[in-house]
């Protein structure tokens, strides 16, 4: 599975430009699903199982896109100014490298701030592509790049750019592979444009019209020196979403996930994320409303080029999903 994760995280796919990731996912899941289609925004919507009298339409959403940058101006000396696709933190960016979809490489630099303690903004940063004039610059306004950082297997833990949310994509792929039979119609949705405002999940949820929705994404932890206050930690199991900045989970869905984890003896944590939201927000408000929550893989250093997850958490998330989807669902 680690090789699948490596393959997925290393493909560039900033918001709106997910097609390479989508193709890779298609190849992986095609043998394991009954149906597959791409909607007008680029969401890959798969279906497994045909449901029965008591089966539900369950939508699981993992987003294909990652944060990235887009060129907004090339100056006369060939430096490319840029804007963000998704939330890019300036503090994580200077000195980092990017790879453009057209193959060009560059390093991110910044104007010297007025004082040492001053916080810079992306408008004061640029990409240096190693050229000396606008004419020689291999990129133009509108070109898109992803952060460049290779996958590293640290044994128990793995680190890479784009773990948010390729780790969710990997979990969803492996879940579809491992799910031998289900009484439900399981819609595995690989969504687009999550990082710019859960846009793909909005249209995918409308199309699928599910009875139940789950986002498979990453969530922040509080187990590093002077980290934001949170009881979550790497290695303590999948995180069940109770609330985040954009939504409050349906308590019946939370109870259902929790009961499943207890039954299958899978460790789990309860997640209240103060900043950020996931595809679950979009699913919840679709049409006449959808009972929704999320299962998240705890992650350190989210939205930096080195996001870290724990391999046991990944395996346990898959185990939990397979367990939940293999049996009838009763929300109460």
């Amino acid at each position: 599975m680690k090789s699948l994760i490596q393959k997925l995280v290393e493909i560039p796919g900033p918001s709106g430009y997910e097609s390479q990731v989508r193709e890779a996912v298609k190849d992986e899941v095609e043998p394991y699903v009954d149906e597959m289609q791409v909607d007008p925004l680029g969401n890959l919507i798969t279906r497994k199982g045909s449901g029965g009298d008591k089966g539900l339409k369950v939508m699981l959403s993992a987003h294909l896109d990652e944060i990235g940058v887009m060129v907004s101006h090339v100056d006369k000396n060939g430096f490319a100014r840029f804007t963000q696709l998704g939330t890019v933190f300036p503090r994580n960016t200077a000195g980092g490298r990017v790879r453009f979809l057209n193959g060009a490489h560059g390093v991110i630099g910044m104007e010297v701030p007025p004082s040492r303690s001053a916080v810079t903004t992306l408008n004061k940063m640029y990409i240096d592509l190693g050229v000396t004039s606008k004419k020689d610059c291999p990129v133009k306004v509108g070109d898109v790049a992803a952060f460049e950082r290779t996958f590293q297997d640290l044994g128990k833990r793995m680190v890479s750019k784009a773990m948010d949310d390729r780790i969710g994509v990997a979990v969803l792929i492996e879940t579809l592979k491992a799910l031998k039979s289900t009484p439900h119609q399981v819609f595995g949705v690989f969504s687009v444009q999550e990082e710019v405002g859960v846009r793909g999940a909005t249209t995918a949820a409308f199309g699928v019209n599910p009875d139940l929705g789950l986002a498979i994404d990453t969530t922040g932890v509080g187990d590093t020196p002077k980290s934001p206050r949170s009881d979550l930690a790497l290695g303590k199991g999948p995180a069940i979403k109770i609330k985040d900045f954009g939504m409050i989970s349906d308590p019946r869905v939370v109870a259902w996930i929790e009961a499943g984890a207890k039954r299958a003896k899978i460790p789990y944590q309860l997640d209240i994320l103060i900043g950020g939201s996931t595809d679950a927000r979009a699913i919840q408000l679709s049409r006449a409303g959808v009972p929704s929550s999320g299962i998240s893989i705890p992650s350190r250093y989210i939205h930096s080029p080195s996001e870290m997850v724990d391999f046991d958490d990944v395996k346990n998330t898959i185990k939990l999903l397979v367990h939940l989807l293999s049996r009838p669902i009763k929300l109460q």
């Binding site: 007008p40 907004s72 804007t83 509108g142 409308f206």
Partner: peptide, 24 residues
């Protein structure tokens, strides 16, 4: 010309493209 990409300004397209199953 290409309008400079950025995170400021939004048009009616922002609402339209999210309707139903998505509208290019």
């Amino acid at each position: 010309q290409l309008r400079q990409p950025g995170v400021v300004g939004g048009t009616d397209a922002g609402a339209i493209h999210l309707q139903r199953s998505g509208i290019p």
